[in-house]
Computed example of a mutant assay.
Amino acid sequence: MKISLLVIGKTDAGYFVEAIKEYENRLKHYIPFEMQVIPDIKNVRSMSEEQQKEKEGDLILKCLQPGDYIVLLDERGKEFSSVGFSGYIEKKSHTVNKRLVFVIGGPYGFAQTIYEKASERISLSRMTFSHQMIRLIFIEQLYRAMTILNNEPYHHE
């Protein structure tokens, strides 16, 4: 199984870029992982929120492959503890054949077509984070899950 994180827009802040790269490198010791960036949509000021979500949805759909298991990172999704999330990843490693794709949407969420295409929704917190920050939080939690599954000392109870 390969894990992919699909995101809208590039990460601008250098400190986030550095931290994300650090955790991406750490993850490669455990599992195939990639972060795929969909370029920002142009001329969003002339679009309604719904039009923007639809345009982003079209771009997300173009990045998906047959057999992908799609999980949206969404504020209304299921919440896990870090240990619970590690169990979730372990379970998916036995049931997902190709790619486990986590998707972070744009500022207004997802188009209805994306909600319909997804198998699940997960929330990383009830709090709201910037799209750049949530990328780092997700990748760190994925790394934490891998260390938990490998009984390594990164996570403390």
Results as ranks from 00 to 15, higher is better:
S4K: 15
L6F: 12
V7Q: 04
V7M: 04
T11N: 04
T11K: 02
D12H: 14
D12S: 15
Y15C: 10
E18Y: 03
A19V: 11
I20A: 11
K21S: 13
K21V: 10
Y23P: 01
Y23H: 02
E24N: 09
N25R: 15
K28G: 06
K28P: 00
H29G: 11
Q36R: 15
Q36E: 13
V37I: 15
V37C: 08
I38V: 01
P39Y: 05
D40W: 08
D40C: 08
N43A: 13
N43F: 15
V44M: 11
R45M: 12
S46P: 00
M47G: 09
M47V: 02
S48P: 04
S48C: 10
E50N: 08
E50F: 07
Q52T: 15
Q52P: 00
K53C: 09
D58L: 09
L59Y: 14
L61Y: 07
L64M: 03
Q65L: 15
P66V: 10
D68H: 00
D68E: 02
D68Y: 02
Y69H: 15
V71C: 12
L73C: 02
D74G: 03
R76I: 07
G77T: 07
K78N: 09
K78C: 10
E79N: 13
S81M: 00
S81T: 13
S82C: 05
S82T: 04
V83A: 14
F85T: 05
F85Q: 06
F85W: 02
S86G: 13
E90P: 00
E90L: 14
K91Y: 10
S93Y: 05
S93A: 13
V96W: 03
K98N: 14
R99E: 11
L100I: 04
V101A: 07
F102A: 04
F102D: 09
G105V: 00
G105Y: 01
G105H: 00
G106E: 09
P107T: 04
G109Q: 06
A111N: 07
Q112V: 13
I114H: 01
K117M: 09
I122W: 04
S123R: 07
S125C: 11
M127R: 06
T128C: 05
T128A: 04
T128R: 06
F129A: 10
S130E: 08
